[in-house]
Each structure stands twice: as C-alpha cells, then as structure tokens.
C-alpha cells in the first residue's frame, strides 16, 4: 500500500467520531467496484450493500469527494502520476458530508480521471484509498461497528487515438 492511500485511511479513521467503543469488523455483504467506461478516461465507482444493516460513510477522501482531495493513486509502470485536483481544508464534518448506504442500496460516483490527472494512451493502475463505513442506527445513535473496505485496483487502458 502506498503512502497516500494509507495516509488517507489514517485521515478517515482519525476523523470518525471517537465517542463510545467502535469495533472494527469485516462484512462480506459490502462490496465496492471501480470500472472503466470503455476505452475512456471515465470510471465508475460503486459501493453496494447486499446485507441487512444500514451503513454510513464520510464522503471525504472517497470518489464522492472529487476533486477536492487526493483519494486515488494512479501509477504507470510503478511510477505515480501527479494529482492535479484541489486540496481543501475542512472543519468538522456536517451531516451532509455523510452518505447513507441502506440495505440493498448502492452509491455510485462517475468520475473523469482526466479532470485530475494527465493521461496519455497506455496502461495505468488505479488504486483507491480504502472506504471506511460505520454502522448506522439513526442520527442519535453512535456507531458501534466500523469497516474498512479495500477496492480492487483497476487496470485502466487507454488506446491510441487511432485504435478507438
């Protein structure tokens, strides 16, 4: 895991409400996927809840925060690409900074990577900072469980203009 991705995880864990004991869990029912829109610089991120419980996530440092933080790491032949998006300073998260993921629901973000990275034809590895979710039982209840969801890196291939 590279520095940016692990640092983002540290940020997310640090920014989560520390009130009460929170148990780190794993949950097979929560899945995330990053997919390329055929031959383009556009990708779709999807996190889905196939379980019975409602989860909540802080949008910061996730694809739902594009492009106000470096939540992604793109490399080509092991060399990191520079992130060209914005970095924002924030205060404490407000209610609207959280996204709810009820049972059976998915959250989807469509991103155009060319808005934040300089991409040329070729193959790239796209990695996301892990997504941290907290159990959610209503605004007046503290989270009791947390899970850190690592998504499979995406192999992004951009053909030469003539190949398209």
């Amino acid at each position: 895991m590279n520095a940016i991705v692990s640092a983002s995880l540290a940020m997310l864990l640090a920014s989560i409400d520390q009130v009460g004991a929170v148990e780190m869990v794993t949950n097979q029912a929560i899945e995330c996927r990053l997919t390329q829109v055929r031959d383009t610089t556009e990708v779709q991120f999807r996190v889905s809840n196939g379980g019975q419980d409602t989860w909540r996530l802080l949008s910061w440092h996730t694809p739902f925060d594009a492009w106000f933080s470096e939540f992604m790491h793109i490399s080509r032949e092991g060399r990191a690409l520079r992130y060209l998006g914005a970095l924002a300073k924030r205060g404490a998260p407000a209610a609207e900074d959280y996204l709810l993921l009820p049972p059976g629901a998915s959250l989807v973000a469509d991103l155009d990577l060319s808005q934040a990275y300089r991409l040329e034809p070729g193959s790239y590895k796209v990695e996301l900072a892990p997504i941290v979710l907290s159990s959610y039982a209503g605004d007046s209840h503290a989270a009791t469980q947390q899970l850190s969801l690592a998504c499979e890196p995406l192999l992004l291939t951009l053909p030469e203009a003539g190949d398209r």
Partner: peptide, 27 residues
C-alpha cells in the same frame, strides 16, 4: 504539503505515530 490528517487531535496523533508524515501535513 498534503492533507494527511485534519484537525488538532489528528495532527497531534500523527506527530507521535509518524513524524515523517507530520512534516508533510498541511494542518
């Protein structure tokens, strides 16, 4: 610098756990 952690408590923790990241953290 990067935004590695936000806020005073996060920055204090980072100083203890990882000084080499702390010196790259904007907050």
């Amino acid at each position: 610098t990067d935004d590695i952690v936000y806020g005073q408590s996060g920055a204090k923790s980072l100083a203890i756990s990882d000084p080499s990241q702390a010196i790259q953290n904007a907050d």
